[in-house]
Amino acid sequence: MVNLTTQIGNLKLKNPVLTASGTFGYGVEFADFIDLSRLGGIVVKAVTGKNREGNPYPRMAETPSGMLNSVGLQNKGVDHFVKEIYPAIKDLNTCLIVNVSGSTIEEYVEVAEKINELEKIPAIELNISCPNVKHGGMAFGTVAASASEVTAAVRAVYNKDLIVKLSPNVTSIADIAKAVADGGADSLSLINTLLGMAIDINRQRPVLATITGGLSGPAIKPVALRMVWQVHKAVNIPIIGLGGIMNANDAIEFLLAGASAIQVGTANFIDPAVTMKILEGIEAYMRLYKIQSVKDLVGALKNE
Protein backbone atom coordinates (compact mmCIF):
# COMPACT_ATOMS: atom_id res chain seq x y z
CA MET A 1 0.00 0.00 0.00
CA VAL A 2 1.53 3.30 -1.05
CA ASN A 3 1.09 6.44 1.03
CA LEU A 4 -0.53 9.13 -1.11
CA THR A 5 -0.90 11.77 1.60
CA THR A 6 0.93 15.03 1.24
CA GLN A 7 1.37 18.19 3.25
CA ILE A 8 0.95 21.80 2.05
CA GLY A 9 1.85 24.09 4.92
CA ASN A 10 -0.53 22.97 7.65
CA LEU A 11 -2.87 21.29 5.20
CA LYS A 12 -2.78 17.54 5.27
CA LEU A 13 -4.17 16.23 1.96
CA LYS A 14 -5.33 12.68 1.30
CA ASN A 15 -3.49 12.76 -2.02
CA PRO A 16 -1.68 15.30 -4.22
CA VAL A 17 -4.39 15.71 -6.87
CA LEU A 18 -6.29 18.98 -6.63
CA THR A 19 -8.37 20.85 -9.19
CA ALA A 20 -7.47 24.31 -10.45
CA SER A 21 -9.62 27.36 -9.82
CA GLY A 22 -11.87 28.37 -12.70
CA THR A 23 -11.83 24.91 -14.26
CA PHE A 24 -13.88 22.96 -11.75
CA GLY A 25 -16.70 25.31 -10.82
CA TYR A 26 -17.61 24.61 -7.20
CA GLY A 27 -16.96 20.89 -7.59
CA VAL A 28 -20.60 19.79 -7.65
CA GLU A 29 -20.68 20.20 -11.44
CA PHE A 30 -18.43 17.11 -11.59
CA ALA A 31 -20.46 14.91 -9.26
CA ASP A 32 -21.88 12.92 -12.22
CA PHE A 33 -18.39 12.07 -13.42
CA ILE A 34 -16.25 11.37 -10.37
CA ASP A 35 -16.42 10.67 -6.65
CA LEU A 36 -15.41 14.12 -5.38
CA SER A 37 -14.33 12.75 -2.01
CA ARG A 38 -11.45 10.94 -3.72
CA LEU A 39 -9.82 14.26 -4.68
CA GLY A 40 -6.95 15.66 -2.65
CA GLY A 41 -8.73 18.99 -2.80
CA ILE A 42 -10.83 21.39 -4.82
CA VAL A 43 -9.85 25.00 -5.45
CA VAL A 44 -13.15 26.68 -6.19
CA LYS A 45 -13.73 29.46 -8.70
CA ALA A 46 -12.38 32.92 -7.83
CA VAL A 47 -14.43 34.91 -5.34
CA THR A 48 -14.32 38.73 -5.30
CA GLY A 49 -15.83 41.36 -3.02
CA LYS A 50 -18.83 42.12 -5.21
CA ASN A 51 -20.72 40.54 -8.10
CA ARG A 52 -18.74 40.64 -11.34
CA GLU A 53 -20.13 40.02 -14.81
CA GLY A 54 -16.69 39.31 -16.26
CA ASN A 55 -15.56 40.25 -19.75
CA PRO A 56 -17.65 40.37 -22.93
CA TYR A 57 -17.98 37.37 -25.26
CA PRO A 58 -15.97 35.96 -27.06
CA ARG A 59 -13.92 34.80 -24.10
CA MET A 60 -12.24 31.74 -25.51
CA ALA A 61 -9.94 30.80 -28.37
CA GLU A 62 -8.71 27.30 -29.05
CA THR A 63 -4.98 27.27 -29.79
CA PRO A 64 -2.47 24.52 -30.62
CA SER A 65 -2.40 22.21 -27.58
CA GLY A 66 -4.22 24.74 -25.48
CA MET A 67 -6.73 27.53 -25.17
CA LEU A 68 -6.92 31.21 -24.36
CA ASN A 69 -9.56 32.52 -21.98
CA SER A 70 -10.57 35.98 -20.89
CA VAL A 71 -13.41 35.19 -18.50
CA GLY A 72 -12.41 37.98 -16.12
CA LEU A 73 -13.39 36.57 -12.71
CA GLN A 74 -17.15 36.34 -13.31
CA ASN A 75 -18.72 35.44 -9.95
CA LYS A 76 -21.53 36.61 -7.70
CA GLY A 77 -19.32 37.99 -4.92
CA VAL A 78 -18.23 36.79 -1.49
CA ASP A 79 -21.56 37.28 0.32
CA HIS A 80 -23.33 35.11 -2.25
CA PHE A 81 -20.58 32.52 -1.87
CA VAL A 82 -20.95 32.45 1.92
CA LYS A 83 -24.74 32.30 1.87
CA GLU A 84 -25.59 30.20 -1.20
CA ILE A 85 -22.59 28.18 -2.32
CA TYR A 86 -20.74 27.29 0.87
CA PRO A 87 -23.69 25.40 2.42
CA ALA A 88 -24.00 23.31 -0.76
CA ILE A 89 -20.35 22.28 -0.86
CA LYS A 90 -19.11 22.26 2.73
CA ASP A 91 -19.72 18.54 3.21
CA LEU A 92 -18.05 17.27 0.03
CA ASN A 93 -15.47 15.48 2.17
CA THR A 94 -12.41 16.85 0.41
CA CYS A 95 -10.14 19.79 1.17
CA LEU A 96 -11.94 22.95 0.00
CA ILE A 97 -9.78 25.90 -0.94
CA VAL A 98 -11.26 29.21 -2.06
CA ASN A 99 -9.51 31.27 -4.70
CA VAL A 100 -9.63 34.88 -3.48
CA SER A 101 -9.33 37.79 -5.90
CA GLY A 102 -9.77 41.54 -5.98
CA SER A 103 -8.98 44.88 -7.59
CA THR A 104 -7.52 46.49 -4.48
CA ILE A 105 -5.72 45.30 -1.35
CA GLU A 106 -8.85 46.25 0.62
CA GLU A 107 -10.97 43.96 -1.53
CA TYR A 108 -8.58 41.00 -1.07
CA VAL A 109 -8.62 41.62 2.67
CA GLU A 110 -12.42 41.88 2.82
CA VAL A 111 -12.91 38.58 0.98
CA ALA A 112 -10.21 36.80 3.02
CA GLU A 113 -11.78 37.98 6.31
CA LYS A 114 -15.19 36.63 5.30
CA ILE A 115 -13.80 33.29 4.10
CA ASN A 116 -11.79 33.02 7.33
CA GLU A 117 -15.09 32.57 9.19
CA LEU A 118 -16.06 29.45 7.24
CA GLU A 119 -15.30 26.37 9.29
CA LYS A 120 -14.96 23.91 6.40
CA ILE A 121 -12.59 26.06 4.35
CA PRO A 122 -9.10 25.42 5.74
CA ALA A 123 -7.23 27.49 3.16
CA ILE A 124 -7.43 30.23 0.57
CA GLU A 125 -5.51 30.64 -2.64
CA LEU A 126 -4.68 34.29 -3.14
CA ASN A 127 -5.04 35.08 -6.82
CA ILE A 128 -2.49 37.77 -7.63
CA SER A 129 -2.07 36.43 -11.13
CA CYS A 130 -5.32 36.75 -13.13
CA PRO A 131 -4.34 38.28 -16.50
CA ASN A 132 -7.90 39.17 -17.48
CA VAL A 133 -8.88 42.09 -15.26
CA LYS A 134 -8.03 45.75 -15.73
CA HIS A 135 -7.26 46.42 -12.09
CA GLY A 136 -5.65 44.14 -9.56
CA GLY A 137 -5.05 40.48 -10.34
CA MET A 138 -1.82 40.10 -12.23
CA ALA A 139 -0.84 43.72 -11.55
CA PHE A 140 -0.12 42.68 -7.95
CA GLY A 141 1.66 39.52 -8.90
CA THR A 142 4.17 40.82 -11.39
CA VAL A 143 6.01 43.22 -9.07
CA ALA A 144 7.79 41.79 -6.04
CA ALA A 145 6.97 44.68 -3.70
CA SER A 146 3.21 44.68 -4.38
CA ALA A 147 3.06 40.88 -4.33
CA SER A 148 4.61 40.95 -0.88
CA GLU A 149 2.37 43.81 0.25
CA VAL A 150 -0.94 42.16 -0.66
CA THR A 151 0.25 38.87 0.84
CA ALA A 152 1.15 40.58 4.12
CA ALA A 153 -2.15 42.48 4.24
CA VAL A 154 -4.14 39.26 3.85
CA ARG A 155 -1.84 37.39 6.23
CA ALA A 156 -2.70 39.95 8.91
CA VAL A 157 -6.42 39.04 8.81
CA TYR A 158 -6.33 35.41 7.71
CA ASN A 159 -5.20 32.85 10.25
CA LYS A 160 -5.62 29.60 8.30
CA ASP A 161 -3.53 28.30 5.43
CA LEU A 162 -2.53 30.95 2.91
CA ILE A 163 -1.55 29.79 -0.55
CA VAL A 164 -0.47 32.46 -3.04
CA LYS A 165 -0.93 31.77 -6.76
CA LEU A 166 1.87 33.16 -8.89
CA SER A 167 1.87 34.60 -12.38
CA PRO A 168 4.29 33.29 -14.99
CA ASN A 169 4.29 36.66 -16.73
CA VAL A 170 7.39 37.87 -14.90
CA THR A 171 11.12 38.13 -15.51
CA SER A 172 12.12 36.18 -12.42
CA ILE A 173 9.53 33.95 -10.78
CA ALA A 174 12.03 33.09 -8.03
CA ASP A 175 12.19 36.74 -6.96
CA ILE A 176 8.39 37.00 -6.75
CA ALA A 177 8.22 33.69 -4.87
CA LYS A 178 10.73 34.93 -2.28
CA ALA A 179 8.84 38.21 -1.85
CA VAL A 180 5.55 36.37 -1.32
CA ALA A 181 7.18 33.96 1.15
CA ASP A 182 8.57 36.95 3.04
CA GLY A 183 5.07 38.45 3.03
CA GLY A 184 3.83 35.47 5.04
CA ALA A 185 2.53 32.91 2.55
CA ASP A 186 2.35 29.32 3.84
CA SER A 187 2.72 27.90 0.35
CA LEU A 188 2.69 28.80 -3.34
CA SER A 189 0.74 27.58 -6.34
CA LEU A 190 2.10 28.10 -9.82
CA ILE A 191 1.57 28.83 -12.61
CA ASN A 192 -1.50 30.86 -13.55
CA THR A 193 -2.03 31.37 -17.30
CA LEU A 194 0.46 32.92 -19.69
CA LEU A 195 -0.66 36.12 -21.38
CA GLY A 196 -1.34 35.47 -25.05
CA MET A 197 -3.50 36.39 -28.03
CA ALA A 198 -5.08 34.99 -31.19
CA ILE A 199 -6.17 36.72 -34.41
CA ASP A 200 -8.98 35.77 -36.78
CA ILE A 201 -7.32 36.46 -40.13
CA ASN A 202 -10.61 36.31 -42.05
CA ARG A 203 -12.05 39.13 -39.98
CA GLN A 204 -8.65 40.72 -39.30
CA ARG A 205 -9.69 41.08 -35.70
CA PRO A 206 -8.61 39.60 -32.36
CA VAL A 207 -10.53 36.42 -31.47
CA LEU A 208 -11.04 37.54 -27.87
CA ALA A 209 -13.15 40.58 -27.04
CA THR A 210 -10.40 41.69 -24.65
CA ILE A 211 -7.70 41.14 -27.34
CA THR A 212 -5.40 39.30 -24.92
CA GLY A 213 -6.16 36.39 -22.62
CA GLY A 214 -4.61 33.66 -20.52
CA LEU A 215 -3.08 30.63 -22.22
CA SER A 216 -3.57 27.23 -20.56
CA GLY A 217 -3.27 23.59 -21.54
CA PRO A 218 -0.35 21.34 -22.43
CA ALA A 219 1.20 24.13 -24.52
CA ILE A 220 2.37 25.80 -21.28
CA LYS A 221 3.51 22.70 -19.40
CA PRO A 222 7.25 22.98 -20.05
CA VAL A 223 7.21 26.61 -18.90
CA ALA A 224 5.26 25.73 -15.77
CA LEU A 225 7.56 22.84 -14.96
CA ARG A 226 10.66 25.02 -15.33
CA MET A 227 9.16 27.62 -13.01
CA VAL A 228 8.21 25.07 -10.35
CA TRP A 229 11.78 23.77 -10.44
CA GLN A 230 13.22 27.29 -10.13
CA VAL A 231 10.92 28.22 -7.26
CA HIS A 232 11.61 24.95 -5.46
CA LYS A 233 15.28 25.86 -5.39
CA ALA A 234 14.56 29.44 -4.28
CA VAL A 235 12.14 29.06 -1.34
CA ASN A 236 11.52 26.69 1.56
CA ILE A 237 7.72 26.72 1.57
CA PRO A 238 5.68 24.01 -0.23
CA ILE A 239 4.65 24.37 -3.85
CA ILE A 240 1.51 23.27 -5.65
CA GLY A 241 2.38 22.80 -9.31
CA LEU A 242 0.01 23.39 -12.20
CA GLY A 243 0.04 24.29 -15.87
CA GLY A 244 -0.99 21.93 -18.64
CA ILE A 245 -1.21 18.72 -16.63
CA MET A 246 -3.15 16.24 -18.78
CA ASN A 247 -2.17 12.86 -17.31
CA ALA A 248 -0.30 11.11 -14.50
CA ASN A 249 3.06 11.40 -16.24
CA ASP A 250 2.71 15.18 -16.35
CA ALA A 251 1.72 15.23 -12.67
CA ILE A 252 4.73 13.11 -11.69
CA GLU A 253 7.04 15.50 -13.56
CA PHE A 254 5.78 18.34 -11.37
CA LEU A 255 6.26 16.32 -8.18
CA LEU A 256 9.82 15.43 -9.19
CA ALA A 257 10.51 19.10 -9.98
CA GLY A 258 9.55 20.03 -6.43
CA ALA A 259 5.78 20.34 -6.17
CA SER A 260 4.21 18.76 -3.06
CA ALA A 261 0.83 18.59 -4.82
CA ILE A 262 -0.56 19.39 -8.25
CA GLN A 263 -3.67 21.00 -9.71
CA VAL A 264 -5.46 19.81 -12.81
CA GLY A 265 -7.11 22.60 -14.80
CA THR A 266 -7.92 22.73 -18.49
CA ALA A 267 -7.79 18.91 -18.79
CA ASN A 268 -11.07 18.78 -16.82
CA PHE A 269 -12.85 20.38 -19.79
CA ILE A 270 -11.85 17.57 -22.12
CA ASP A 271 -12.19 14.68 -19.71
CA PRO A 272 -14.22 15.49 -16.59
CA ALA A 273 -12.97 12.24 -15.03
CA VAL A 274 -9.29 12.91 -15.72
CA THR A 275 -8.40 13.62 -12.07
CA MET A 276 -9.21 10.04 -11.09
CA LYS A 277 -7.06 8.69 -13.92
CA ILE A 278 -4.19 10.91 -12.77
CA LEU A 279 -4.58 9.75 -9.19
CA GLU A 280 -4.59 6.10 -10.22
CA GLY A 281 -1.62 6.72 -12.52
CA ILE A 282 0.46 8.24 -9.73
CA GLU A 283 -0.35 5.27 -7.53
CA ALA A 284 0.64 2.81 -10.27
CA TYR A 285 3.90 4.69 -10.85
CA MET A 286 4.75 4.55 -7.16
CA ARG A 287 4.14 0.81 -7.07
CA LEU A 288 6.25 0.30 -10.18
CA TYR A 289 9.22 2.19 -8.75
CA LYS A 290 8.59 1.00 -5.19
CA ILE A 291 8.13 4.49 -3.83
CA GLN A 292 6.45 4.29 -0.43
CA SER A 293 5.23 7.84 -0.04
CA VAL A 294 4.40 10.80 -2.29
CA LYS A 295 6.67 12.81 -0.02
CA ASP A 296 9.59 10.75 -1.33
CA LEU A 297 8.77 11.90 -4.85
CA VAL A 298 8.68 15.62 -4.11
CA GLY A 299 11.79 17.29 -5.53
CA ALA A 300 13.38 13.90 -6.14
CA LEU A 301 14.74 14.98 -9.50
CA LYS A 302 18.23 13.55 -9.99
CA ASN A 303 20.56 16.03 -11.56
CA GLU A 304 24.04 14.56 -11.49
Binding site: G22, T23, M60, A61, F269
Partner: peptide, 17 residues
Protein backbone atom coordinates in the same frame (compact mmCIF):
# COMPACT_ATOMS: atom_id res chain seq x y z
CA UNK B 1 -24.09 28.32 -30.65
CA UNK B 2 -21.41 30.19 -28.70
CA UNK B 3 -17.88 28.82 -28.61
CA UNK B 4 -17.40 26.58 -25.58
CA UNK B 5 -14.57 24.94 -23.75
CA UNK B 6 -16.21 22.58 -21.23
CA UNK B 7 -19.90 22.41 -22.16
CA UNK B 8 -21.09 21.71 -18.62
CA UNK B 9 -20.91 25.03 -16.85
CA UNK B 10 -17.50 25.44 -15.30
CA UNK B 11 -15.30 27.44 -17.68
CA UNK B 12 -17.70 30.38 -18.16
CA UNK B 13 -16.42 30.95 -21.71
CA UNK B 14 -19.71 30.65 -23.64
CA UNK B 15 -21.74 33.34 -21.87
CA UNK B 16 -24.34 35.55 -23.51
CA UNK B 17 -25.74 38.76 -22.01
Amino acid sequence: ENTMACGFGVCLCCVTP
